[in-house]
Amino acid sequence: MKGKTEILWALLVVAVLLGLWELCVHLLQLPPYVLPPPSRIFLAFARDFPLLLHHALVTLAEVGLGLGIGVFLGVGVAVLAFYVRPVGRALTPFLVGSQVIPVFAVAPLFVLWFGFGIWPKVAVAAMIVFFPVAVNFLDGLRSFGPELVEFFQALGTPEHRIFRMVRVPGALPFFFSGLRLGATLALVGATVGEWVGASRGLGYFMIQANARLRLDRVFAAILVLVLLGLGLFWVVGLGERLLLRRR
């Protein structure tokens, strides 16, 4: 029940803020190409819904593919770094330092390298997902003491089974905190990639609308992005609850 009241409060806050926004726009008589009122944004959202959906699906596909590739590579590199010591030692500073890599600044390069299709955006999303997943999963694999593993090692359990029974479940909470971080950022990454150069996707839609001073459409696209982000967050949370249930 606590969750429900919290949601109600959140909705109330949003409603109040939107009301103030609407009021300000009308009182200050701001033209819609400077700041459209929420009512106009919702109207644009409803009218352009099929178009928005079309572009949203493109963005979602980019993020989905990016997530898949980023998770696959991130987990792979973490496992490699965990088992092959020299690799781990060589990669750790890069993984730790990866937080400072301006992934968004690399987006134009990716467009240059991979063309205007969905692949440069997939690459940006994958890169954004890769680092937190790799760093967190590796942290997770290293997170518990040897006691948990030694019981099984002494029994002569082969390492692949120890990996499955002990190491992966032990590292999963870390993995998910990395994935949650990556999933939402990947959406931003894909959108930025679309700003730089695309012919489809929400980022493209926003650039087009912005150029025509259709700010109601820009905001409608932002609304869709927010919804997508919430959806991604929810899906990751659902996966987490399913895999880590009753913990």
Binding site: G145, E147, F151, A154, L155, R161, G170, R247
Partner: peptide, 30 residues
């Protein structure tokens, strides 16, 4: 290696498994 069951010092139970699950792990290990 593999001949004896060793109980390390300290907490060695898997925190994500129930008591039953932890006990069964001793056989799953094989």
């Amino acid at each position: 290696r593999g001949q004896a069951a060793y109980m390390p010092q300290g907490d060695s139970l898997l925190p994500w498994r129930t008591a039953l699950g932890n006990i069964l792990a001793a056989r799953e290990a094989d």
